[in-house]
Structures are given as C-alpha cells and as structure tokens.
Amino acid sequence: MDIGHLVAIAITAAVIQNIVLTYFMGICPFLGVSRRVDMAFGMGAAVTFVNTAAGVVTYLLQAYVLIPYHLEFLQYVVFIFVIAAMVQLVEMYLRKFFPRLYDSFGIYLPLITTNCAILGTTLLIWIKGFGTLAQATVFSAFVGVGFTLAIVIMAGIREELDFADVPKALRGPAITLMIAAILAMAFMGFAGIGG
C-alpha cells in the first residue's frame, strides 16, 4: 500500500479539488445550514459519515456485483439507494442521541440524500479510476472533510456578517453565493499542487 499516494489523494480531495469550491457540488446544505458554526460542523460531520460509508459500500457493490454481472446501467439507482439508507442511519442516530442538533437541521438532514456532493463522490470514485478499496475510502472520507472545511469557513464568515450592513437585496443566499465565488477564486491558487 502506497501511503504517499493516499496522502496525495487525501489532500487533493479535501483542499485542492474541494468538492464545494472547485466542483460546485453540495451547494444546498452549503447555503442552507451555514448560518451557525456549530450547526455547520454538525452537518459537515453527518455528510462526512454518509460520504465515507456510501463510498465504501458503493465501491464494493460496483466492483463485486454490478460489474461482474454487467449491470452498470443500474449504477445510479443502486448508489442513490445506498446513500438513502446511510442517511436514514444517521437520522436515527441523531434523533436518539443529539435531539437538539436533529431539530436544528430540519429538512436539511433527509436532504443529504439528494446532496449531489455524495452521489458525486461515489461516481467520481469510478470516473477517477481509483483501483483499490483503500483509495476509494480515503477519497470519500476526505471529500467529506473538504465539505466540512468549506461549510465551517462559510459559517464563520456568515456569523461575522450578522453585524455587517449588507444591502437588503443581497442578504441571505445572494451574499452567501458571492462569498462562495470569492472563496472559489481563492482556492484556485491551489491548482497544480499534488499533480
């Protein structure tokens, strides 16, 4: 197992090709749950968990069921199904152990199912051609870390903006998207690092 290669995959997934700021996936929770830092961190943790679990399970399904039986056309259906099951798991866990966090997420928790960042990750594993389960696991976990990074940074900025005199027309999603644009320009600087 090449540890250096795994580290490169991890850094690339989390920072250099950040799922939100480079691929522009997962924008809806990025806009919806980035109002408070603690909530954003909770959402980031939930997405990271679902992402890692879904990445591992879909990798195994694709490699040992879909491809051997020539069922690749079922990829999307199967992947969404797995993701929905994982989200259900998180939802049950949160409702039992973190009821306050569960309430504050509201609709955004079941909506992780339709978070394109997660379907995107499971598909990217195959588009990028990761050959081993270890690579797929590291990639999907660190995509989640990158999502957490982006949403926590955004939540910090938005908490600071509570005190700012933002023009009325721009409050809410508009200013958030503009900040995301500036963040994306900033993360452009990492292009090329890690090959």
Partner: peptide, 26 residues
C-alpha cells in the same frame, strides 16, 4: 511559498491572503 513551489501559479501571495481572510472569523 507552498503555492509558489508546488502550484501552477508563479506567485501565491494573493491566494494565501484570500484563504487566510476566509479563516479570519474562525
């Protein structure tokens, strides 16, 4: 310096400043 050495861009000051600006509230 990391961007200068490893990245595609010859200079990294601007990107570094913007990234750290984003971290400032945290």
């Amino acid at each position: 310096v990391v961007i200068r050495i490893f990245g595609n861009n010859p200079e990294g000051v601007m990107f570094a400043v913007l990234v750290m600006n984003a971290m400032t509230p945290l």
